[in-house]
């Protein structure tokens, strides 16, 4: 049985179809990158995996059971921004998850329990390279360090699935390369299943075991919202030659251009 199964999934907002006829099986341990132009439903799909959005029809299963209708500890998330709590220090941010698990009423722990959590948090923070800023607040960290913190915060819960929503979109290219290395290392060391949404096709091609391209197959010039996107390319790690990259790029860019023209016209 696959970890994640998607069967004939549709997502509509009113008359606008975002996703149509989506079918997908993802095994435990895969690293899927989701690419596509804006408005092609890759973030919507991620939010459905998260439990923040529900499918309009079709099935979304985890371990053969319907996905819970709200977020939970088995699915970790890192957003592009606002993933960490500004009022907690780095260490406290990472300790928060286990503390909430152990203390249902106060959400705080003391004594030996706290010490164990603290050690686990320090261990994970060392893994992501933040051992030297344990007592700083997130506002004192750089963008890249904040994202490392967000990843550590998600990892301490030992989630079955780690969801990354354009996690490096706001970072400089150099730092982004470091982060790719970090994420790949953590994925291997912790046996994670990762879904990562990205704008950057190259990033999607270089990272992970599987590339999912979200794109619209049918385009209606009169009603741009009539047809939704689906997965047009599902490429395993071997199929990453430049030829395929340019084919995917062309297809995605054509849709992107179509959508932006339609949206501008629609706005006027």
């Amino acid at each position: 049985m696959s970890l994640i199964e998607v069967r004939q999934l549709w997502k509509r907002y009113g008359d606008t179809v975002v996703l149509e006829k989506l079918n997908l099986n993802v095994e435990a341990g895969e690293f899927c990158t989701l690419v596509g132009t804006s408005g092609c439903g890759k973030t919507t799909f991620l939010r459905m995996l998260l439990g923040d959005e529900q499918p309009s029809s079709g099935e979304l299963l985890m371990d053969g059971k319907p996905m819970p209708r709200e977020p939970g500890p088995e699915r970790g998330i890192v957003f592009q921004r606002y993933s960490v709590f500004p009022h907690l220090s780095v260490l406290r941010n990472v300790m928060l998850g286990p503390e909430l698990q152990q203390s249902r009423f106060l959400g705080r722990t003391w004594g030996a329990g706290r010490k164990a959590i603290r050690e686990a948090a320090e261990h994970i923070l060392t893994q992501v390279g933040l051992q030297h800023v344990l007592h700083k607040y997130p506002s004192e960290l750089s963008g890249g360090m904040q994202q490392r913190l967000a990843i550590a915060q998600a990892l301490i819960m030992k989630p079955r699935v780690l969801l990354l929503d354009e996690p490096f979109g706001a970072l400089d290219p150099g730092i982004r390369a470091d982060m790719h290395e970090l994420v790949l290392r953590l994925w291997e060391e912790n046996h994670l299943t990762v879904f990562m949404v990205t704008h950057d096709l190259k990033e999607g091609f270089s990272l992970g075991t599987r590339l999912l391209v979200f794109d619209k197959v049918r385009l209606d010039p009169q009603v741009p919202g009539a047809y939704g996107a689906t997965i047009t390319f599902d490429l395993p790690i071997g199929r990453r030659d430049t030829d395929t990259l340019s084919r995917v790029t062309r297809s995605v860019q054509a849709t992107g251009q179509f959508l932006s023209e339609k949206t501008v016209k629609g706005a006027v």
């Binding site: 998260l50 970790g76 921004r81 606002y82 993933s83 928060l96 998850g97 819960m157 989630p159």
Partner: peptide, 27 residues
Amino acid sequence: LPPEQAIKLQTLGGSSWHLMLRVVLPQ
């Protein structure tokens, strides 16, 4: 407050009460 914080808290296993006590109240 960014809605991402409420989602993040749920992925950390937090309840509505936890959200109020540990995230919203101190902020």
